[in-house]
Amino acid sequence: MIVELVFQLLQVTLVILIAPLLTGVVRATKARLTRRRGPPLVQPYRDLVRLARKEAIVADSASWLFRVTPYIVFASTWVATALIPTFATGLLFSWSADLIAIIALLGAGRFFLALAGLDVGTSFGGLGSSRESLFGALAEPAMIVIVFSLALIAGSTQLSTVAAFMTSGAVGLRVTLAMALVAFIIVALAENGRIPVDNPATHLELTMVHEAMILEYSGRHLAVIELAAMLKLALYVSLIICVFVPWGSAIADASVADRVVGAGVYVAKVLAAGVALGVFETSIAKMRVFRVPDFVGAALMLGFLGALLLFVSRTLK
């Protein structure tokens, strides 16, 4: 029991520690690929600390919601991340919420962030909120449809069970799974505001989405929000790892050593994903805002197609 609890806490801390590193890796990869030296890998940590030390400037027209939102967003993202079996399945509290609940928790974060964008009463904030709401409204059903596919394959929406099932190798290679993976990646890009949907490095552009929402944030509030964003990226990466490339992760009753190995494998996989993301972002251009619905809609269609194939093939067997 105690060991379980320790591992649960370990996982919770691990994700939060690794999240800025992941962002750093992505940035570094992109810099190298564009022949820049780029910031060091630990720069995100430094940024966070620096921001936290500064005084926070709050607009005159802001309400209490503006100041609470960062913590809510951070908390919901963190809880969602903690529920993902990163390096070991069958953790103590893994049954307290399933994949659908994780999606909903992320939705909660987005809900409050969008509200915060509206709170100060500027045109940029509203713009960001409005677009974020649209993307969310498209990405969320896509996610749910992907979950349908996964749940049908694994017979569960419980991530631990799904991951354990995937590790067991009973899956084989399925068309549905491939479709789901593509759809998943699209959703992940949209949800994290990555290129081609949004450019995380942008400022002062009419095309920005996420940055527009948090435009008025500064100091420690910004730090918390940035951390939440990094965490979210880590979450999606972990999710992909856990569902699609679960090998190496420890199963439910594994020994402590296995779990430590699992953790190492996990970190390696995350870093690799960061590099892949960096490469991808460098090789592609950002698209127009109103092309995004088509892009995310494609994910929805792919996911739906996959689920449908599955529904039908389920009975053929």
Binding site: A52, D60, G219
Partner: peptide, 17 residues
């Protein structure tokens, strides 16, 4: 955050880029 970071808050007009 409140323990280890700055707790200072300044009210100001909105920046709005």
């Amino acid at each position: 955050i409140h323990r280890f970071a700055s707790g200072a808050v300044r009210r100001a007009p909105a920046w709005d880029c």
